[in-house]
Design a protein around this nucleic acid. Structure first.
Lengths: 335, 335
DNA sequence: ATATATTTTTGACGCGCGTAAATAAAAGGC
DNA sequence: GCCTTTTATTTACGCGCGTCAAAAATATAT
């Protein structure tokens, strides 16, 4: 920066000022700087800038598992929003490991981020550690909530998801059973089960929970194995299956195909399958998957906007906001 | 660090030395530091460390499109390897945009990475810019090659992929036509087309290329739309389709299902579909997808190991190495 | 105990930048 | 042209650490 300042014949502090806000210097000065900029392609070192700045332009984005296209997609949208707003996002994935999540938060502190958008692992998360982090760094939780932690939570309204699918399925055919992992790591899964039970109660229908075994993030395989077992033993209490999430449903569809069971609402189909999330691939499954869609855009936008508000407010909001977006039922071929 | 040094009653340079290599200090000193470490959970600021270090422990990982599970998966494996080797990887996605790729490389310089693992966008990449980057930063290209750029390239042998699928398909049924995008962004796609043509020549079979329109990274949708058009107009020259990659194939499968065309090698199926990549979802498609698998592990491991060698060698290798790993044919239900 | 080798400490400088206060220069108004 | 306001410069310090050279302390060998 010293060299560059010399090259444009302007003092370094003025250059520094320019990079913090191009409009804070006189137009003539700005012109000279920008002319020199074209010639000598200099750019300030953002990591050195962050060392002394009162407030950096860094934003941390943390997702639990990036190899899940759902998170990959939401991360992509959020990243873009941050860049467009003049921030420098850095993306981290916990890769499903609580240890990694802790490590990431510890590293993130050193970046001195203006704010963080955190989608926690869920039940596996170290609550105390995340709490401590949120006390020091302005943080918005998204996707999965941890009660009372972070300045705000932005996510989807699980009841809205399940109520729509249950209502639709039971209106157009037999009432659904609920297909889920026995021990789901994600708190949304529990909320969805409760929503299912509540909806069935309201509709005066008998609920059936099918809990399958399996751990980790390989949901498709877990769903497939679980479905094979259930289907082979003919344990399905109804011909309509509502899966907790699309990735499980993808596995169930695969199992059905393997067993020659035709899925859908067409003539000749013996089972209907629906699910939740509107996973990027759910429109390409065979048959395409009837599901309840997240309002990706709304969740991303609102999470980012809330973070910006939080940053501008100096890192504190008056009350902890919880914003939930309703789902949109997507009727496709599977149910 | 000053404070922490005072707390353990040891000088700051010694602490600094400890963090660079715990074994470089006397065991008794090390013991005292580690005891204090437990008590006062201090950790050095990696971004400040990187400012003066001769060689940082940073590694940059750049992929073209993280919402593609193929890259998400490979990034996950590579990240893990780097962490295990004591490095600090930072992951970036170009999100399919050449501008982003340039931006990422420019930002990456500032991190002063010891090395970079770069999977370029391909044809859309700004070759000059990447070349300039590689001159300054030790870089290994992976997945898609840019001739002569970077210290080495690690990828898969496209001929091995296509030769195996073509051989298998033509041996077990009618010879395949080749289904691809008209204007693929990825150089591997071109290599695969050439491999297809060459294999058909060797087997003395007539080649058929089916080129479909579409741009961007939404390959499934492109494949689906293209296949719908081709199938509806009955333009398929043979009952066996070899897709350039699995994501296109997922779209083709979806189109077939939509049109009631049964896919597979079983009785009653009218079309066979095979593909390349062994995408994480290809085992869950309906029917499951016959494909040629990347040796993910080998590519990841070798890329990382080559980078470590490059770093230890001071950033230069004697000659530019190109390592290609053979594919493994995965026979599933679709062909 | 002495000499030698090893480790640690001290002190000082640098990385690339932000920031604050005092001073100097330029712009605008009359 | 002079005065006031705005903007730019100078100077100096700080961030959290690496690194180097010289001096001091400690360990090892004899």
């Amino acid at each position: 920066m010293d060299e560059f300042a010399a090259l444009c014949g302007i003092s370094r502090p003025t250059i520094s000022k320019y990079f913090n806000d191009p409009n804070s210097v006189r137009p003539s000065t700005r012109g000279r700087i920008e002319a020199a900029l074209k010639e000598y392609d200099y750019r300030p070192n953002i990591y050195a800038m962050n060392q002394n700045r009162r407030l950096t332009k860094n934003i941390g984005i943390v997702v639990p598992y990036l190899a899940d296209p759902f998170f990959a997609e939401i991360a992509r949208v959020i990243e873009r929003r941050c860049i467009d707003a003049g921030f420098t996002p850095t993306l981290f994935s916990s890769h499903g490991e609580p240890g990694q999540e802790i490590e990431i938060l510890d590293t993130l502190r050193l970046l001195r981020p203006a704010g963080v958008l955190l989608a926690p692992l869920g039940r596996a998360s170290d609550r105390k550690h995340i709490e401590a982090f949120c006390r020091d760094v302005p943080t918005i939780l998204f996707d999965s909530n941890i009660e009372g932690v972070g300045a705000a939570f932005v996510g989807s309204d699980n009841f809205s998801f399940v109520s729509q699918t249950v209502e639709y399925l039971s209106r157009t055919g037999s009432a659904p059973c609920f297909f889920e992992m026995r021990d789901p790591a994600n708190p949304n899964a529990n909320k969805r089960r409760h929503a299912y039970l509540e909806m069935m109660r309201r509709l005066n229908l008998e609920p059936h929970l099918i809990k399958i075994d399996g751990t980790g993030w390989g949901f498709e395989e877990i769903g497939r194995t679980g479905a094979l077992k259930v289907l082979k033993q003919d344990l399905l209490p109804t011909d309509t299956v509502l899966c907790s999430n699309d990735r499980l449903a993808i596995g169930v569809l695969s199992a059905c195909h393997e067993l020659g069971i035709r899925v859908g609402r067409e003539e000749g189909c013996t089972i209907r399958i629906a699910s939740h999330d509107d996973h990027p691939y759910s429109r390409f499954t065979c048959p395409s998957l009837t599901t309840a869609a997240h309002d990706y855009e709304a969740v991303s936008d609102h999470a980012v906007e809330t973070l910006f508000r939080l940053i501008e407010a100096g890192g504190r909001l008056e009350t902890r906001e919880e914003t939930l977006f309703a789902a949109r039922l997507i009727m496709r071929a599977s149910a």
